[in-house]
Design a protein around this nucleic acid. Structure first.
Length: 351
DNA sequence: TAGGCCATCTGGTCCT
DNA sequence: AGGACCAGATGGCCTA
């Protein structure tokens, strides 16, 4: 689900946690890099003081350990009493572990943020959730791999369909917004009996259509319980506008089955599709009307660009070199996959 | 108000 | 022993 970006999250704790942790450790939310440094310094001080207390209490610790002489001895590992000193040590350890864990999660979030930027539909103001980001990234990788594998120009609907597989309704609409498409035009009808990971019945109607039927998905990977391709997910009825900047790249490839694309109702969303975002900085939200273009990476074979994998239908020279016919699908863990990855890297970094 | 998403704390496990 | 990683629990924020 997509969520608008909200204010800084406040740190939350139970009473017990509050008791154990210092104010420094409670002030955990990073307002920025500078603030983060200050927080860490405060925490260091706090830990230092606790450390001093700990040494003073060590003797007291031993005395208290002998308190329970009259009680019957218990078998098994001796459960040490939580003395003051021990408690202090525990607190210090816990605080350090908490700080590490926070940093670790921040690193994870940073990585996720980087992923958001290279996946289609990046927006600073309306971020994809973590799970949706991962799903979209997976679909994106698969779709690009499929383009390389087939060596053919993809059809728009197939591509978008692959991108939206398993995404929630809001994210699906977001992607549609990015591509300035009515999702109704690319999301298939789906009967209740049809597994969501299988291609729709109508899929075959689209030449060059991605059938999103990777070996892994059809051979044992669970179909995600989230999201469906039920047309009820689709709500934006968009009229009158063609494919925006996509059009040149899909010219002659798009399906002409009489089904008209409906244009966006309004400026889609404050989103930029950025299939090309490996190269450029995230675009300001106000630039939402620039629909994404494959031109940066897939260049259409233009001067100075690398050969386009979206060539006009013919096999891609690069792919030809790689004998893509033999490449395995998305889940085939083989050297072919590595070759494909190398190929993708070459494409994204050549331009 | 319920549900989704998130940040954080916590204790357990594994590894160095 | 200490750190990394993980999953569960908790509670705040936001939106429908």
């Amino acid at each position: 689900m997509t969520r608008s970006v909200r204010g800084e999250h406040t740190s939350v704790e139970s009473d017990e946690q509050r008791e154990l942790c210092s104010p420094a450790s409670r002030e955990t939310e990073r307002a920025g890099a500078g603030a983060g440094v200050e927080e860490e310094e405060e925490e260091e001080d706090q830990l230092h003081h606790l450390g001093e207390d700990e040494e003073e209490d060590d003797e007291e610790d031993e005395e208290e350990d002998e308190d329970g002489e009259n009680k019957p001895k218990r078998r098994g590992p001796k459960k040490k009493k939580m003395t003051k000193a021990r408690l202090q040590r525990f607190k210090v350890r816990r605080m350090k572990a908490n700080a590490r864990e926070r940093n670790r999660m921040h690193g994870l979030n940073d990585a996720l943020e980087s992923l958001r930027k290279v996946v289609p539909c990046y927006s600073k103001t309306q971020k994809l959730s973590k799970i949706e980001t991962l799903r979209l990234a997976k679909n994106y990788i698969w779709a690009l791999s499929e383009v390389l594998r087939s060596g053919k120009a993809p059809d728009l609907m197939g591509f978008v369909q692959a991108l939206c597989k398993g995404l929630s309704q809001p994210t699906t609409n977001l992607v549609a917004g990015c591509l300035q498409l009515n999702p109704r035009t690319f999301l298939p009808e789906q009967t209740p009996d049809m597994p969501t990971h299988l291609p729709p019945a109508g899929a075959a109607a689209y030449p060059g259509h991605f059938s999103y039927q990777s070996p892994g998905l059809t051979a044992g990977l669970p179909s995600p319980p989230y999201g469906t391709m039920d047309p009820s997910h689709i709500f934006h009825q968009v009229k009158g506008q063609p494919y925006g900047s996509l059009e040149p790249f899909f010219d002659g490839v798009l399906v002409s089955d009489g089904q008209a694309f409906d244009p966006p109702l309004s400026p889609p969303l404050s989103i930029n599709g950025n299939f090309s975002s490996f190269k450029h900085e995230p675009v300001a939200a106000s630039d939402y009307d620039k629909s994404f273009s494959f031109s940066v990476h897939y260049g259409g074979g233009g001067a100075g660009g690398h050969p386009s994998v979206y060539g006009s239908g013919g096999p891609n020279p690069r792919c030809g070199e790689l004998q893509v016919e033999q490449l395995m699908g998305f889940d085939g863990h083989s050297h072919h996959e590595r070759l494909m990855n190398a190929q993708l890297n070459a494409i994204f970094h050549d331009s």
